[in-house]
């Protein structure tokens, strides 16, 4: 295991921020830590990155205990925090060279590595400009580059794309993917379900200081429920009859949406149920405008696990920043 945490607890005054967090991340995989604001995601990352001692519990990162051997851990990790930690008054190249020197790569070594990373992260054109002129996406890329200076075995990304537009997010995702393909273990926190779905091999859902679910994205989706067939009718008048027919293939109660012509029925997975539903609708001459299988999204997982209020709030935020 590249990261192993057992029973991490942390309290600030009267607030217990972490109530016993267990995590394990096999080498070369990505764990997405998903949760609403204040769930304890950042606190967990800070403990694993040796910035904060836990009150209780233990954790090893890259084979070393975070409390007993913080220096050994620091030599093997990269951290990109919630806000791009770059010095605005330095150029991109100077920022990377500085961090490289502090990673003890030596003056020349740091300069060489900075040049390589600037190129890989498509920042060469802006390398000698002060970073205060950079866009949000460029800063995040520089921040990610800085976390990779010493070729870490384990990378912590704390909400790496919060506040970025979609294009920048996708660029950053592909850059993280490259690292994973090269064998780096990644722990990523995010509020974006889509991000976790896209990048993570496994997901731990954390809420109020505890891991409330974990598994692969598919496992989590299955936990919430199977596939559903969604049928939109051209005309609401045929809805009652269509619903009756669809109930023959459904494995649970069917639902009619408020518009009176969108029907959703849970069905067994596989092509059989789809074919049967399509056949009965065609035989009766029901006019269908949309016919689709829907799998539960991570949003559904999140909503059902953390309760409506928190989840809805998170989704709203996602829309605002997206």
């Amino acid at each position: 295991m590249a990261i192993e945490a057992e029973g991490l607890r942390k309290r600030y005054g009267d607030t217990e921020v972490l109530k016993g967090v267990d995590l394990s991340v096999p080498e070369g995989t990505v764990l997405g830590v998903l949760g609403p604001n204040g769930a304890g995601k950042t606190t967990t990352v800070r403990i694993l990155a040796t910035l904060l001692p836990p009150d209780d519990g233990r954790a090893t990162v890259a084979g070393h205990d975070v409390v007993e051997q913080p220096m050994e851990v620091r030599r093997r990790i990269g951290l990109a925090g919630q806000y791009a930690a770059v010095d605005e008054r330095l150029t991109g190249r100077e920022n990377l060279t500085l961090i490289g020197r502090l990673y003890r790569l030596g003056r020349a070594g740091a300069r060489k590595r900075a040049g390589e990373l600037l190129e890989r992260f498509e920042l060469t054109h802006a390398a000698d400009r002060e970073t205060k002129t950079y866009s949000g996406g460029m800063r995040r890329r520089l921040d990610l580059a800085a976390s990779l200076l010493a070729e870490p075995a384990v990378l912590f990304l704390d909400e790496p794309t919060t506040g970025l537009d979609l294009t920048s997010r996708m660029t950053l995702w592909s850059m993280v993917r490259e690292q994973v393909d090269a064998g780096v273990t990644v722990l990523l926190t995010t509020q974006y379900l889509e991000e976790a779905d896209h990048l993570a091999d496994r997901i731990a859902v954390i809420d109020k200081g505890q891991v409330i679910a974990d598994g692969t994205p598919d496992e989590l989706k299955r936990k919430v429920g199977g596939e559903r067939l969604e049928v939109s009718l051209a005309d609401a008048s045929g809805a009652a009859e269509a619903l009756r027919m669809l109930e023959r293939v459904s494995v649970g109660p069917a639902v009619t949406a408020d518009d009176g012509r969108t029907l959703t029925v849970p069905v067994a997975s596989g092509i059989g149920a789809i074919a049967e539903a399509a056949a009965v609708l065609r035989d009766r001459g029901v006019e269908v405008t949309d016919f689709a299988m829907r799998r539960p999204s991570l949003d559904d997982v999140f909503l059902s696990l953390t309760g409506q209020a928190d989840g809805a709030e998170t989704i709203e935020k996602q829309e605002v920043t997206a």
Partner: peptide
């Protein structure tokens, strides 16, 4: 404020 201290503290310095 801008997170540089966090970065420095995560380095083996």
């Amino acid at each position: 404020k801008n997170g540089l201290v966090d970065r420095f503290r995560s380095l083996p310095m």
